[in-house]
């Protein structure tokens, strides 16, 4: 069955995915809002940058992040100057990489939800004395509820499933950066197929349940209502 290292990897993965999901919702909401409402010519560029992780091989993304956050990279210089050390091969580095990697999975459902709401409810709320921030929480959040749900589920699930970026940025340090997908890889490398089966089977069931939730709880998560 599973050993302590396996359980450690599961716990670490859940911690990582939860933290990343919270950060993604906080970060992705304003980005999605801007993409849904801005008329700026930067819109296309920002939209493309956010969507990049969808098509980029994880190894490429991981490589650039490794270089950027490393001791000679721009981000690494800043974190060193702040006395934080460098991010690669730490849990913090994993969080940063995962946020970037999963960003489109959160931004796109939110953007679709915001676009589906349109500007009319915002205008109505303004004529009823609601400030823009008030309108966001009292009108937009309830109306975009299924968008938020979809975004959170996808962001969480996608973070749990990542491998390539973790391999490049996080390494394989038990208790620090060793997540489930790494642990499966380790088991296969050393011929421990039974444990690989347990972890892989668990991931399969988990992923299925997540998608089942997505398709039954939210109406047409991919389409505008």
């Amino acid at each position: 069955m599973l050993n302590d290292e396996d359980f450690g990897a599961i716990l670490l993965t859940l911690q990582l995915a939860s933290l990343v999901t919270v950060i993604l919702l906080l970060l992705g909401t304003p980005i999605a809002w801007w993409l849904a409402h801005a008329r700026s010519r930067w819109k296309g560029i920002i939209g493309a940058v956010v969507a990049l992780p969808l098509v980029l091989p994880p190894a490429v993304l991981g490589f650039y992040l490794l270089v950027l956050m490393g001791p000679h990279g721009a981000v690494g210089q800043v974190t060193k100057a702040l006395g934080l050390g460098t991010l690669p091969f730490t849990f913090g580095g994993l969080v940063v990489a995962s946020v970037i990697y999963s960003l489109p999975f959160v931004v796109q459902p939110l953007q679709n939800a915001f676009e589906a709401i349109g500007s009319r409810p915002l205008e109505v709320a303004a004529t009823l004395r609601a400030s823009p921030l008030d309108t966001f929480f009292s009108v937009v959040v309830p109306l975009a509820r299924s968008g938020f749900l979809t975004a959170a589920i996808l962001g969480f699930a996608h973070t749990i499933g990542e491998f390539g970026v973790v391999l490049m940025v996080g390494g394989n340090i038990p208790g620090k950066t060793q997540v489930i997908s790494m642990q499966i890889f380790n088991h296969v490398e050393t011929g421990e197929y039974a444990q690989a089966h347990w972890l892989s089977g668990g991931m399969l069931v988990f992923s299925f349940v997540v998608l089942l939730m997505l398709y039954t709880l939210t109406p047409n998560p991919w389409r505008k209502r």
């Binding site: 009319r120 109505v124 709320a125 303004a126 004529t127 009823l128 004395r129 609601a130």
Partner: peptide, 20 residues
């Protein structure tokens, strides 16, 4: 003055009630 600070009432062509 932004709309939400103007003491007015506005009726749109479609009722636009909040569906929630």
């Amino acid at each position: 003055l932004p709309t939400h600070q103007r003491p007015l009432g506005y009726v749109f062509q479609e009722a636009s009630l909040f569906p929630h």
